[in-house]
């Protein structure tokens, strides 16, 4: 009986050979503008051909009446094209409220969706931000999954995003 459970579990974890952690830090920069609204932000993993590998987070206005905050999801243009337009937002575990100025960290492990289904390979982390009455910016960080060793990469946005980092731990 115990053996049965053990084998069942090892089957679940069979695809990504080992456990690993992926942590993303996104800085929403302070902007000196007359009218400021928190940006919509999408964070996802793309394949080398830019197709979607895994959605990690979408920060959008989830509190408006009649789900009206979805009206601006298309301004996350690349995410909208690659994934968003095929989804029924909001989605539990993916949708989150827009974030204030500052650094925000989100973490994922191979124990849970969506990384539990991510096959080994070459990927890019994509972070796209779009701000009402403001601009849009998209940043990419390439990485190998699963990670062979602990690593941390960082990139800096110029307009709508500040520091974005990707930390991987085997």
């Amino acid at each position: 009986m115990r053996k049965g459970i053990f084998f069942a579990l090892s089957g679940v974890f069979a695809t990504p050979a080992m456990a690993a952690d992926l942590t993303v830090t996104v800085e929403i920069p302070r902007l000196d503008v007359a009218e400021y609204h928190r940006p919509y932000v999408a964070i996802w993993v793309e394949n080398p051909d830019q197709s979607l590998a895994a959605n990690l987070a979408v920060w959008h206005d989830i509190k408006m009446r009649n789900n009206e905050g979805t009206k601006w999801l298309k301004d996350l243009r690349q995410w909208w094209r690659r994934s968003g337009r095929d989804l029924e937002m909001p989605i539990d575990g993916l949708s989150g409220a827009t974030r204030p100025v500052g650094e925000h960290e989100i973490g994922f492990t191979t124990d849970a969706a969506p990384l539990d289904k991510l096959p080994a390979g070459e990927y890019r982390l994509v972070v796209e931000a779009s701000r009402e009455v403001g601009g849009r910016e998209m940043l990419r960080i390439p990485f190998q999954w699963p990670p062979a060793a602990a690593s941390s990469q960082e990139i800096r946005g110029e307009h709508e995003l500040g520091r974005v980092s990707l930390t991987l731990k085997p």
Partner: peptide, 8 residues
């Protein structure tokens, strides 16, 4: 030409 939301 590209829109999101339920009743735009």
């Amino acid at each position: 030409t590209v829109l999101s939301g339920e009743d735009p």
